Simulated scan of single mutants.
Amino acid sequence: MRRIAVGERPDWRERARASGFTFHTIGGAPYWDESHAYAFTLEEIERDIEGPSAELHALCLAFVARAVEDERILASLAIPEAAWDVVRDSWRRGDPSLYGRLDLAYGGDGTGPAKLLEYNADTPTALYETAVFQWLWFENLLKAGRLPTGSDQFNTVHERLIAQFREIVGDGALALTAYADATEDRGTVAYLEDCARQAGLSTRFLDLSDIGLSADGGFVDRLGAPIATLFKLYPWEWAFRDSFGAALAGTRTRFLEPPWKAILSNKGLLAHLFALEPGHPNLLPAYFESDPRKARLGTSFVKKPLFSREGANVLMVRDGAVLAQDHGPYGAEGYVRQALAVLPEFDGRHALVGSWIVGAESVGICLREEAGPITTDAALFVPHVIEPG
Rank of each mutant, 00 (worst) to 15 (best):
F23K: 00
R93H: 11
Y191T: 09
P278T: 07
N120Q: 07
F138R: 01
K304F: 08
R368G: 14
L269C: 09
L116G: 03
A312D: 09
P113H: 03
P52D: 10
V220W: 03
A321N: 04
T183H: 09
F346G: 04
K294E: 06
A58T: 06
R160E: 15
F23P: 00
P292A: 14
G107R: 01
E333Q: 10
E118K: 01
L174H: 02
G200P: 06
G172M: 07
L343R: 01
E14V: 13
D85K: 08
G364T: 06
K303M: 11
A190K: 01
L102F: 13
E369P: 02
I73M: 04
Q338W: 02
H57Q: 06
G27R: 06
Q338A: 07
D242G: 13
I4Y: 00
A173T: 15
I211H: 02
K232L: 10
D171A: 14
Y31T: 09
E277R: 00
R337K: 03
S308C: 12
P388L: 13
R2F: 08
T125Y: 06
A246R: 03
P124C: 14
P305T: 08
W236I: 11
I45Y: 04
D347M: 07
F244A: 15
A295W: 01
E118D: 11
L176W: 04
L56C: 07
F244E: 09
A275G: 15
A75Y: 01
E8F: 13
I162Y: 02
E345I: 12
P148G: 09
Y287D: 05
G217Y: 01
R88K: 12
V363R: 02
A75I: 02
V314P: 02
